[in-house]
């Protein structure tokens, strides 16, 4: 029977995990342990519904409702002096709960503190754009859309940013394979040569380092290499190896395998 491969997450996975192995946790501590964070959290709690909050690796993590994100970030910026939105992106949890986790990484230069605002949205839902608050979100939200397909409502220019405009599929989804999907394999062939050339050129092989380890015939024919797809014959001629430069490289005499001497004795 063929081994089962989950389709909802095609990323690399550990091929062996001890069955008694329990993953340790990065310690989380209570927000009350840090006075600055505790005050910020109090202020947030008085206005918004906070689902969870803790400190992990010196930074406070706050979970909010996805409908509040604009107001929370506005409050953070105006009242709590978190004047910079360093980063904003999503995490794909579709396989687990059909959700995306969105995080906003904020920095207060006055307090020297960093806070991560997090929220869950369901697959297919949109988020409110915070581009009106931080111009940096303009590009971050476009990148999030480009990579995950999460639309930001109210964004002035919700287009792809890193991938081509006419690309299909969202590369950072866990369902998207590393070497690209069917569309990716034909994208450049279709663009450059046209669809009618597909038969002649063939799909683009994006994983150039790929070695078919089950191919016992073509694998490791060192010195007897054959072109890809050619038939393997037992009496194949050895691959001719020589310097490209006919006259030899400057200062180096042309290396000739036949006439050269190999010195075996390391004590020579």
């Amino acid at each position: 029977m063929r081994t089962y491969k989950p389709k909802d997450n095609v990323q690399a996975k550990a091929y062996y995990t001890d069955r008694f192995w329990v993953a340790p946790q990065v310690p989380k501590s209570d927000v009350a342990e840090d006075a600055v964070f505790a005050a910020d959290l109090e202020a947030l709690k008085s206005k918004f519904d906070i689902k969870d909050a803790y400190i992990q690796v010196e930074q406070m993590v706050v979970y909010i409702n996805p409908c509040d994100n604009f107001e929370v970030i506005k409050f953070m910026r105006d009242e709590l002096e978190y004047t910079q939105l360093s980063e904003l992106s999503a995490i794909d949890w579709i396989a687990k709960s059909n959700q995306f986790e969105i995080f906003y990484q904020m920095l207060s230069m006055k307090k020297r503190k960093r806070v991560r605002i997090k929220m869950f949205i369901n697959n297919g839902e949109a988020v409110n754009s915070v581009e009106k608050l931080f111009r940096s979100a303009d590009w971050s939200e476009r990148e999030m859309y480009d990579m995950f397909g999460i639309v930001a409502n109210g964004h002035p220019f919700m287009k792809r940013i890193l991938m081509p405009y006419d690309w299909q599929g969202f590369p950072l989804l866990k369902t998207y394979p590393l070497e690209g999907d069917e569309f990716a394999a034909w994208y450049e062939v279709d663009k450059i040569y046209g669809k009618e050339a597909r038969d002649i050129i063939g799909p683009e092989l994006r994983d150039t380092a790929r070695v078919d380890r089950y191919d016992s015939e073509r694998f490791a024919r060192l010195g007897f290499e054959i072109p890809y797809g050619a038939e393997v014959k037992d009496d194949a001629a050895p691959t001719v190896q020589s310097y490209q430069e006919e006259g030899g490289v400057f200062m180096i005499k042309k290396f000739d395998k036949e006439t050269s001497v190999v010195i075996d004795d390391p004590q020579r």
């Binding site: 996975k13 550990a14 993953a23 340790p24 946790q25 990065v26 989380k28 992990q56 690796v57 930074q59 993590v61 360093s86 980063e87 992106s89 995490i91 995080f103 990484q105 920095l107 960093r114 991560r116």
Partner: peptide, 25 residues
Amino acid sequence: PVGEVYVATESPKGELGYYINSQGG
């Protein structure tokens, strides 16, 4: 371990940050 971290360092160009979410794998 399972957890997440955001670490910012001052690279010559500015704040270079790495956000890592680990699920223990």
